[in-house]
Write a protein that binds this DNA or RNA. Structure first.
Lengths: 219, 219
DNA sequence: TCCAATTTTAGTCAATTGTCAAAATTAGGG
DNA sequence: CCCTAATTTTGACAATTGACTAAAATTGGA
């Protein structure tokens, strides 16, 4: 059984430098993440990041050429971690396609109850509307998630044409993301997440199994 | 057949004053909305709102005591419009519960393809995490939407215990909101929204009809 | 010990923020 | 058409904040 926890950041070690430098780099990103989560994107200024990390403003500029680069690195570290987790679940050896689909649902919905995810992703959705880099990096993440879902759906219901599999993957992915707003960290329905997970698994699996090509024609 | 369009703002007329004043009030809110939609919450400053509405900064303070009050009024005008639309659909005379549920799904998903909704709501979700007023007013909206869903579910599947109806209403509502991120205005899947609507209607109706109390026990 | 890596100090410079008081203009009932 | 209340403009305050930089000081570790 997989552990269903997505690490906050996945940072690729930078070449050269001391261990202290590696720590500093990571520490800055964690501070920025913490600010975004606890105080929103308006709080994401170099001054506040420096204060939060107990460092000096000048030092941020030693690690990152600009504020934009810092944010890019942060986004990348968060998203890379998700991509890795998804891959692990999707390719779990010896598990049936249906079991892996259920595991993916569990992972995503579990993660949504996390403070980081509940707060961070809505910020990203908003930012993506006005920042091309964030928009593209988010699209990449969701594309990969859908490709994985697609494979599983294909294994479970091979009859379904590929374009309809895509719509179904989209529907499942979007449904899960939507729970963030209602059943995320400290949201009124957070306590009901286990029930939601059960319901989601049942609903999605049934949908994938029972769907026929004709079902997509509007009534 | 209802028209499935939610007006941008519903403004309760203020007592006294000239017609010009009423227009000015509404014009300011529209400008603020437009800024938020096109440039994000960071652009929501009194000066930019004044510029956008072709007015003077001082005049904003004549209509609104403070920036905070302006934002409250804006949020209220947007949300009130939704509440009215929901009520109309839910209580459409002569339509079966199933038809009204399908109409509600159509309304919400149709609205999601709107530029206003696609851009405004993610901003609100993010802001709600750090602004108690926005949080509360949003909760109110979603609570009312769920109460309505709940009634319809009860009519369609009376066997289902009330607490499980609530979870189901939550799941349906959240699923629809999640589509904002993927199939909203100018999103890559916007063109597939008609298919998504068909799929959502089928999936939700089937779920409501077929669900039994035992289904909520975890596997 | 010594050099490269990291951190601090101490700033620049420009731009912006919400709010307000008072004067100027306009609306529209009488 | 006049007069009062409603609306709009003017012009400013006072304070804060933004990203970024150069050079000096400190530290890591081979």
């Amino acid at each position: 059984m997989t552990n269903f926890i997505v690490p906050d950041l996945k940072i690729t070690p930078r070449p050269g430098g001391y261990a202290r430098g590696q720590d500093g780099f990571e520490h800055i990103l964690r501070s920025a993440l913490s600010l975004l989560v606890n105080h929103g994107s308006a709080a994401l200024t170099l001054r506040r990041i420096a204060a939060e990390s107990g460092m000096n403003v000048g030092n941020l500029n030693y690690y990152f050429r600009s504020k934009e680069e810092l944010i890019r690195e942060l986004l990348n570290a968060v998203i890379s971690s998700y991509e890795e987790s998804f891959d692990e679940i999707i390719h779990e050896p010896g598990a049936s396609a249906e079991a892996r689909l259920e595991n993916l649902v569990m992972l995503v919905l579990e993660d949504i109850t996390t403070k980081k995810t509940t707060r961070f992703f809505p910020e990203l959705w908003a930012m993506a509307n006005h920042d091309p880099f964030i928009h593209d990096r988010m699209s990449e993440l969701y594309d990969r998630a859908r490709v994985s879902l697609n494979e599983l759906i294909g294994e479970i219901n091979p009859e379904l044409p590929s374009d309809q599999r895509e719509i179904l993957a989209l529907f499942i992915s979007g449904s899960m993301e939507g729970m963030t707003v209602f059943a995320g960290y400290q949201k009124p329905w957070a306590a009901q997440m286990p029930m939601l997970q059960t319901l989601a698994k049942k609903s999605f699996v049934q949908l994938v199994k029972s769907l026929r090509a004709e079902d997509f024609k509007a009534a």
